[in-house]
């Protein structure tokens, strides 16, 4: 969508579930459905398919670019349960990032590139988690889903019980941002800290 004119542009005739601009703004990582299977594709800004990024019978969704544009974190059930994986855009190599928990999804790369926030399901419900981009033990931030980093990397905005909440990345502070009727979900922080 052109934010100035309000005009929408159709980018793909395929059924698409998500699209994320590359950091340089030239390409889009998108999850598209083909014959019932969802894989990741690299699209031009005009929506032309430049390259298939994943080709697996499992579900591949929720692409998230690294700040340098070299890698894409995504959610896949290729290992039997939904987990976070990292794809090298150039080589196509894929490594698994999360091993704790049976349902981890919605990755978001921190602005510095050192951390990845994601949604993880625990016995108590869904939680906002963070983990080093190179792997390791995850850190529980707060209850919620669909995290998005503040541009300075100090905070995470996310949804919880139909409301948007803001938490420091260590989880020590946590406050509700929205209220009222309806569900508030899937927040995305603008590039400017306001």
């Amino acid at each position: 969508m052109d934010l100035q004119s309000g005009r929408d542009t159709r980018l793909s005739s395929a059924v698409g579930y998500s699209g994320r601009w590359s950091p340089d703004g030239t390409t889009i990582a998108a999850s598209l459905e083909q014959e019932g299977n969802v894989d990741l594709f690299l699209l031009s800004a005009e929506g032309r398919i430049l390259r298939r990024l994943t080709d697996h019978p499992g579900i591949d969704v929720s692409p998230a670019w690294s700040p340098d544009g070299r890698e894409i974190a995504f959610c896949s059930d290729r290992g039997g349960t939904p987990q976070i994986y990292i794809l090298s855009v150039n080589s196509g190599q894929v490594r698994r990032l999360t091993f704790q928990g049976e349902y981890n999804t919605s990755p978001a790369w921190s602005p510095k590139g050192d951390q990845i926030a994601y949604t993880g399901r625990t016995a108590g419900g869904f939680r906002i988690m963070t983990i080093s981009a190179t792997g390791g033990d995850p850190w529980e931030v707060a209850a919620g889903e669909d995290p998005s980093w503040s541009p300075d990397g100090r905070y995470l905005v996310f949804s919880s019980r139909g409301r948007l909440r803001l938490a420091s990345k260590d989880g020590r502070s946590n406050k509700q941002l929205t209220g009222g009727g309806g569900d508030d979900t899937s927040p995305a922080w603008s590039a400017r800290l306001q």
């Binding site: 019932g36 299977n37 579900i59 969704v61 059930d77 919605s106 399901r121």
Partner: peptide, 16 residues
């Protein structure tokens, strides 16, 4: 239960 995008993909798998 689950996220929007994942459930869309799962629903597509079931239909298929």
């Amino acid at each position: 239960r689950g996220t929007t995008e994942y459930n869309l993909a799962l629903g597509a798998k079931r239909a298929r």
